[in-house]
Amino acid sequence: MTVRYFLALFLLIAAPSLAQTPAVSSPSTEDLGFAYRIPAGWDAIDAQSTLPEVKKRQMETAKTDDEKKEIACVQIPISARHGAPPSFLAAMALPFDCFGQIMTEKDLPGFAEGSSEGPRAIFDFGDPVYGTYSMGSHKMWIERAKGNPKGHPEMPYTLEIACSLLKKSAVCWMTVASDDQALKEFEGTAVTLDGDFFTELVPATAFDKKPTS
C-alpha cells in the first residue's frame, strides 16, 4: 500500500457524499504524537464511516502480510472539506504499536512516495515536484503536483502531501486544493510534532533546492 493510493481511494469513495455529511469534531491525535487543527472555515467530515470500505478494497489487492497489517492499522483521524468546487484535506497515521515495528528515516520515502496510480484514478496530474525540509528534529518529505479531475480540465487542483516519522507513528498530511487560498490554509496551519510546536505545517522554503556539498 502507498499513502497516496490510500488517501486517493478515500476521496474517491467519500467525495460523492461529503456535501451531505454533517460536521463532526476532529478526534484527538495526541496518542499518535501530533496535533493539527482543521483550518477555520473548513468543515470536518466523518472519515470513520468511510474507512471500513476503503480498507476492504485495499485488502482485496494486498500482496503481503505486512501490507495487510498496514491497511488494518492505518487511521484517518482528521479529514475536512471547504468551498465550491470543494477542497479536501486529511491526515493519515500508521501507529507503530499496532503495526508491530518502528519505521526509520530510510523507510520514509517508500512509505510516503509509492506509485501515482491512486491519484491518477481520479485526477490528471502533471509531473510532481518533491522536496524535504526539517521541523526541529523531524525530517519532512513533501510532494506537490498540479492537475484536474478527469474530464474536467477547467477545474485546476493541487495535490500536496507532507509526511514525517514521529515517536509513535508515521503521519502524512494531504490536501487536494481547488485554489491557492485552500492550499495556503493547509500549509499555514500550526502543527505539534512529539510535543514541539511549529507555526506552520509547510514553510515557504519547502521546495527550495538544497545546496550540494
Rank of each mutant, 00 (worst) to 15 (best):
L165A: 09
R144D: 01
F198P: 07
A162L: 07
Y5A: 12
L183Q: 08
L108V: 05
I71N: 06
D127W: 06
G195M: 08
A84Q: 14
L18Y: 08
Y36T: 02
S116H: 15
Y133S: 09
D31G: 15
K184I: 02
D180Y: 05
E60D: 12
V24S: 04
Q48T: 12
D179I: 06
E117R: 11
M135C: 10
P95V: 00
Y36M: 14
S164D: 03
G126H: 08
V74Q: 01
Q20P: 07
T199G: 15
A90R: 02
M155Q: 14
I13K: 07
S115W: 09
P109G: 01
C163W: 03
K139H: 11
S25A: 15
L193D: 01
F111Y: 13
G110Y: 09
G195D: 11
S28C: 09
M59Q: 14
F198M: 12
V176Y: 02
G151M: 04
K55W: 01
S25T: 14
I13A: 06
K106T: 13
W173G: 01
D65N: 06
L201E: 00
V24C: 07
T29C: 05
D194T: 09
R81V: 11
S25C: 12
A170N: 06
P52C: 04
H152M: 14
P203W: 01
E200T: 09
C172N: 10
P39I: 04
K55D: 01
W42F: 09
G151R: 02
H138R: 12
E30Y: 08
A15G: 05
P16G: 09
L183E: 04
K69L: 05
K55G: 02
I102V: 12
P153T: 00
G136P: 03
K68M: 10
M59A: 14
K63F: 07
I45V: 15
S115F: 13
N148I: 09
T212Y: 03
E113M: 13
A145C: 03
F99H: 09
V191N: 00
Q101M: 13
R81G: 03
V191F: 04
A35G: 10
S87P: 03
K68T: 10
P52E: 08
C98M: 03
G114K: 04
Y130L: 09
E113G: 14
K150W: 10
T29R: 04
F197W: 13
W141T: 07
A84D: 14
A121P: 12
P27L: 00
S115Y: 11
K146A: 12
A93W: 00
T64H: 08
T132K: 14
S25M: 11
L165F: 10
Y133T: 03
E187T: 00
S169A: 13
F6V: 08
K209D: 11
